[in-house]
Design a binder for these strands. Structure first.
Lengths: 205, 205, 205, 205
DNA sequence: CATGAATGAGTGTTCATTCAT
DNA sequence: GATGAATGAACACTCATTCAT
């Protein structure tokens, strides 16, 4: 019977990841020293290294956690049978996340992971999955709708899915660069875009 | 009379910036050492430091050059009086740039500058101007068209401009993460989106 | 009345020393971490530190045990009144030890202790006694034989003893560096050398 | 035309190796920190690492230099056609080296390399060659002499060679552990042993 | 001017040891 | 007693930058 429960291990890992995320958001992936993380976490170097074997692993773990969270949220939204409902749900989720001040740190780190992925194989595969999984889900959704005549026939579902993802990624960037950027007007544009995609009775109202 | 002409100075600067860009694209802003740049440029440490006073300045200069190039291209396109023509010109420019294999390095470095901007004031202001100037230009264009009834009245020109920029930024990311991503289908979606924005006789054909 | 018997304490100490010896032989005195020893022993850090107060003490204890074992074996052999018998007994003991696969670990660690002794006073005194005690014993033996005319008069008993010890140490090294080294031919040479030392009727047969 | 000559590079390497050797002899291979070597050499960390890429490489280079020196000395001695002359030459060389106070450091480090070789493949191959090359040379010498009837027929030349090497290695150890050990009496024993090996008229005087 | 050897503060990481549970 | 998570000083090594030649 272990004296230290799995719950304790999880708590420590979370504590460390939270500290690392805060530091990375504040000073950047590379300017953050392990010393920074150590202080922020209120632990010792040894303690941190007994949970994560390197700074890179810490970075990867943050990317992983981020990926997992997004994935489950997206998968949830995608379960809606109705295209419009699913898209609305996804839109709701993303805009809610974008509004969330607590998520700000996470988004700032996320952007750094996007850049880091360009020169880090493991992060690249993580980031790719973060694009590919939602893209496939969205594309499947749109393809079904397209067959039923609810989506313009001249557009590729896959490209549409990519465009929606690009829209969100691009907005995450703009918001990170400028806190004063307004979410609502942008949301109206996205909703209009979604409506423009959808045809038929759905589109009438 | 300077022994070293301005032309020579410019050539050296360009040589160094090209070398740095190649290194940054290959190994990342932070993993690239000055030694890497020195070797790639085929110069000495001293030579490089006589043109740029620090690695940061090198990075900033690359960002600046990138900004300047984009700005002039965009300004050019924006000169068209006709909204549709202007948008088509911009779309043409961006997709041409995206297709350009020689620009691949530049885009990879660009993404890293986006991330770096989050923790580097000078880069942040550069990146912001890279968003704000095109945004203002686009927004002005769309506002004019909107007054003339050629753009849906329910959408804010500024938000529309942001969305178009987000779309491009997002696609730059996807393309950088996955070389196999197809440009054409995406372009069709963007064109459809642009058309959806534009109303009236312009939209008929 | 102690709850923990001396027998139990001894067993634990032996268990720890065996584990440490195995690790030291495998990875070297310095590359072996206490964690390695802890795992090999199947105990906890705390348990080990309650028997040995430091890694250095562990090393010293291994040296001590090694010294004690050799000393008693040599002392036994030296009890033979007859020089030839004593030398044969010693030769037998050393070559038997050298043949013993189980002793291989011990010899590997022993060599490391020889090196360590150069910078560790306590080990140095241990190693010195490991040379001096056999040397004095051998020298006394040879001196007696010399007085009886059984050993060449022109050689110093003490230097002869040193040479015999050097011969064995040197061979321990060669064997440790190369497992394929043959013992028998070397033994023949040592026996010839011993015979060359001994004169008179002893040497006749 | 390089501003820095090969001679300068060699001088720096020697300077660093000398400093490292001094430190290693004084405090041991493992207790010596790179900081120690840096101070002893009177250089900076960076300077040292531009000549040797790691502490291990420094250690190996010292081993290599030691090996090279011994090898050439031994090869020289072995050139004598006459067995007795060659053996005397070798004996002279080794005892001269053993007497040399300046070589004391080198011998102390050499012993540590012997131990290190047990857990370091590269050092092992170096140390092995340090045994095998002299052994083969000696064995060839003895084999020739044996065929001419000048060496006892019942002893294997190779084992004899090993024994001579063992004798020297063993004495290096004893001398390192105890500075007061006398060289002369030991030398008399070795000479006697060499004579015992050699037969015929050579052996008469 | 140009060079590139030299600098040295700073980095990520390790590991012998401790001590709260 | 026994445990093993936690400590933190110490380590090998890097790299942006300088400056004597």
């Amino acid at each position: 019977m272990p004296k230290v429960t799995q719950a304790h291990v999880d708590a420590r890992r979370t504590q460390i990841l939270d500290a690392a995320r805060a530091c990375f958001a504040r000073r950047g992936l590379h300017s953050t020293t392990m010393q920074d993380v150590i202080q922020e976490a209120g632990l010792s170097a040894g303690a941190i290294y007994s949970y994560f074997s390197s700074k890179d692993e810490l970075i990867e773990a943050i990317g992983s956690a981020r990926h997992a969270r997004e994935q489950s949220a997206i998968a949830n939204a995608g379960r809606k049978a109705d295209v419009r409902q699913a898209l609305e749900e996804l839109s709701r989720y993303f805009f809610a996340a974008l509004q969330d001040k607590n998520e700000r740190e996470g988004r700032r780190v996320g952007i750094q992971l996007w850049a880091e992925a360009l020169t880090n194989e493991r992060l690249l595969s993580l980031v790719r999955r973060g694009v590919d999984e939602p893209r496939k889900m969205l594309a499947a959704l749109l393809r079904t709708a397209q067959r039923a005549g609810h989506v313009r026939a001249d557009l590729q579902p896959d490209a549409l899915a990519r465009a929606l993802i690009a829209l969100f990624h691009g907005f995450v960037l703009q918001q990170a660069w400028d806190k004063s950027v307004q979410l609502e007007p942008f949301r109206a544009v996205v909703d209009a875009a979604l409506n423009a995609i959808l045809l038929g009775p759905l589109n009438e109202r």
